[in-house]
Structures are given as structure tokens and as C-alpha cells.
Amino acid sequence: MTKALERRAKLRTDLIQAAERMIAERGLAGLKTRDLAREIGCANGAVYNLVADVDELVLRVGSRTLHRLDEALSAAERAGEPSPQETLVRIAIAYCDFAAENLELWRALFEHRMAADKILPDWSVDDQLQLFRHIYHPLALLLPKRSQEELGITARSLFSAVHGMVALGLEQKLVAVPLPALRKEIANLVRAMIDGLIARAE
């Protein structure tokens, strides 16, 4: 790699890391390319030599967030008894804890909107979809008669229920729920949903 390419690669890494810090501190709305350029020591226009546009920059930061979330969910899977139901409970609580500890970066995953005519890159889609394996595999053990398509829908539904509780529970408004109570209620919800799914399957 030439010196010029090495410098560009380092600047690109610096840019993504600076954007991550900025979103963590200010939220997605506080992401400003002019401030990023000043922080990494390049001209404002040079930012777009490092990434195609702000959408790519936000997606690259999101990719880093999703990889850390993946690590947190993997650790939760290994952390206790191998019961599929309790694995799903641990995963749900780990998701809640990750959101609470990385609030603005987690929010940015869902707040970011691309133009309707822009296609999400394959690498970004893969980053998102591969996380569902944490839910899919325990569900497959609990509901062996369901097809892959049915399990995929159930996995997304379970995620949506937990995500909704986390999103509302962590709001800094009247609907906010103290984190210990939120964790307990999420565990109750997951257990109730799984019990209901198993009962219906039988």
C-alpha cells in the first residue's frame, strides 16, 4: 500500500471513529461534517473523498454498533443455563442493557432514514440480518415443527415486542421505566410469549 493510500485509510478510520463519538455525545441530529473534518484535520470537502455521503458514514458507524451488539448478545447466550427459553430471556435483557449503555448510537440505528430511491448496501443488510440468529436458533429448538419462514417471522415479532418495550422504557419522558423494572418486565414478556407459543404449538 502506498503512503497516500495508507493516509487515506487512516483518515477514513479516523472519520468513522470521530462520527461515532459525535453521535454518542450529540445524537444523530448533532452529526456535522464540518466539525468532523476539523477534528480529523482535513478540509470539509475531503470528507466526501473518504465516504460517498453522510448516509454511508452513518451506516459505517451503525455497522460498528451492530458488531458490538452482536458481541453482547453472544456473551449473553453463553452466560447461563442452555435452556432455549432462558437463553432468549438473557438475549432480550442484554439487548436492553446495550441500548441503555449506548443510547444515542442505538437510537441512530433506527432514526437514520435514507432517501426512498437509495438502496441499502448489501453489507449493511447483512450486518442487520445476521443478528436475528440469536433469536432464531433458540426458537427453532422450542418450536421444531415450524418452517424456516415461520420461525423467521416469529423471531422478528419477538424482537419487535422487546424493542418496543426498550424504546419506550428508555424514553426520557413520562413513559420512561427505571432500568431494573424494565429488565424484569422484559423477562416476564419473553417468558409469557414463549409459553404461549409452545402451548399453541402443542
Rank of each mutant, 00 (worst) to 15 (best):
A19G: 06
P84H: 10
E101K: 15
K118E: 13
R183E: 14
L197D: 02
L174F: 03
P138R: 04
R156I: 14
S63N: 06
A140D: 12
H134I: 07
P144Y: 07
N188M: 07
S160W: 05
Y95M: 07
D97P: 00
T154A: 10
A43E: 12
E202H: 13
M165A: 00
M193H: 07
L57Y: 03
G164Y: 06
L103V: 01
A187Y: 10
E86K: 02
R191H: 12
V162Y: 11
L131H: 08
R90D: 07
Q148I: 02
E185L: 10
F159I: 02
L50D: 03
D126Y: 10
S74W: 00
L66G: 00
P138W: 01
D117N: 13
R90P: 13
R200G: 12
P144A: 01
K173F: 01
E71C: 00
P144S: 08
R7E: 06
L129C: 02
R78L: 15
R90H: 11
V125D: 04
L5E: 10
V58H: 05
I198H: 08
F159K: 09
E86T: 03
D195F: 07
L143H: 05
I119Y: 00
V190Q: 04
R200H: 14
M1S: 05
H67I: 02
M193T: 13
L139R: 12
P121Q: 06
G45D: 02
I198S: 08
H112D: 06
A116Q: 06
F132H: 12
L131F: 03
E77T: 10
G169S: 01
T13N: 03
R107T: 00
K3M: 05
R7T: 10
E150D: 14
F159V: 09
E101N: 13
G30T: 10
